[in-house]
């Protein structure tokens, strides 16, 4: 297991290197320039200002030189300063990532808490009222756009009932209970949709596992049904669920821009989106790279989890 883990980590190095090239190339390919954005218009000395800023930001150097410089700095965890706010990018990212991770973790946990019992129950009681209800709920979750569900939640729980704030963010480190008030609606909006996918996946995986011979054998040996389901079947059925949830989590870290706008949630997705609009190259590069590395690491963790769930899975 240790050798396998180390080997997998070593394999990540070229993946991350390719990622850095892709990130840098993507930013280079963006039309428009940070310099034009910063100097604005109407100045009588625009050309002079452009030359000054281009030199200050090193944009007059060849692309390969800038890439090499950026890579060396990045390897030292020095992302430089934002070209727009002029503050360290590490500060900008660190002020955003916790909010995003907080939302994504709670959203995913919520989805698993809903989906696994519901999917399992639907499979075990196939074609029953429970099964049909679970399928209708999950179909609704998949069909209703996340942003629309979020707006409905705001209307009901904030505007009409007045139970929860409609938008904003409070850090759990500053005020844990206060932060939960702001978290519930966005996390529910994420959790409901993700739970819809995961419920269907868990149900189909469970049905697949329940039809296998080892389940019949376990039942023939007189094992209690609860043990057959939860000890043996569910454990095997969780492998695809864990895979999808892991990838969903990684996706949520950068993919909740719309929800972040609806709930005015200061997440990393919105920060990168704004950086793209303003062509804040180092912030885009650092943000996308960090998210990319998280996705890669999440994939690794998902793979390692297989083994924990089912020791028969071979680690090649």
């Amino acid at each position: 297991m240790l050798a396998y883990t180390l080997r997998r980590i070593a394999q990540l190095v070229p993946v991350v290197l390719v990622l850095t090239v892709a990130v840098f190339a993507f930013v280079e390919a963006l039309p428009g320039s940070i310099v034009d954005t910063l100097i604005g218009t109407e100045g009588g000395d625009v050309e002079e200002a452009r030359a000054i800023l281009t030199k200050e930001y090193g944009l007059d150097r060849p692309v390969y030189e800038r890439y090499a410089l950026w890579l060396v700095r990045t390897l030292q965890f020095d992302f430089g300063n934002s070209l727009v706010t002029r503050r360290p990018i590490s500060t900008e990212l660190l002020s955003r990532i916790p909010a995003t991770v907080y939302l994504a973790v709670v959203g995913i946990v919520l989805s698993i808490v809903i989906a696994v019992p519901l999917g399992t129950l639907a499979a075990v009681r196939r074609n029953s009222a429970v099964d049909y209800t679970a399928q209708v709920i999950s179909l609704a979750g998949i069909s209703i756009p996340e942003f629309w569900f979020a707006i409905l939640c705001v209307l009901l729980f904030s505007l009409y009932l007045g139970w929860l704030p409609s938008s904003g963010y409070v850090s759990p480190l500053e005020d844990f209970w206060g932060s939960l008030q702001f978290l519930i609606l966005p996390a529910a909006a994420i959790g409901f949709r993700q739970a819809a996918f995961t419920t269907r996946l868990t149900r189909s995986s469970m049905l697949d596992e329940l039809s296998k011979e080892y389940v019949d054998t376990a039942r023939a040996m007189g094992l209690p049904e609860r043990r057959v389901i939860f000890r043996y079947t569910l454990r095997n059925a969780m492998i695809p669920t864990i895979t999808i949830s892991g990838l969903q989590f990684a996706n949520l870290l950068g993919g909740t821009v719309v929800l972040e706008s609806i709930f005015a949630w200061p997440g990393i997705g919105r920060a990168i989106f704004e950086a793209i609009l303003q062509r804040d190259y180092p912030l885009i590069q650092a943000g996308v790279l960090v998210l990319g590395v998280i996705v890669v690491v999440m994939n690794l963790l998902v793979d390692l989890t297989y083994r924990l769930l089912n020791p028969r899975v071979k680690l090649a």
Partner: peptide, 18 residues
């Protein structure tokens, strides 16, 4: 100052007393 880019998000937050 609480910037909320979407006009209706701001309006809702005003109505809810935030």
């Amino acid at each position: 100052g609480l910037p909320k880019k979407e006009d209706r998000v701001r309006l809702t937050a005003l109505r809810t007393g935030e």
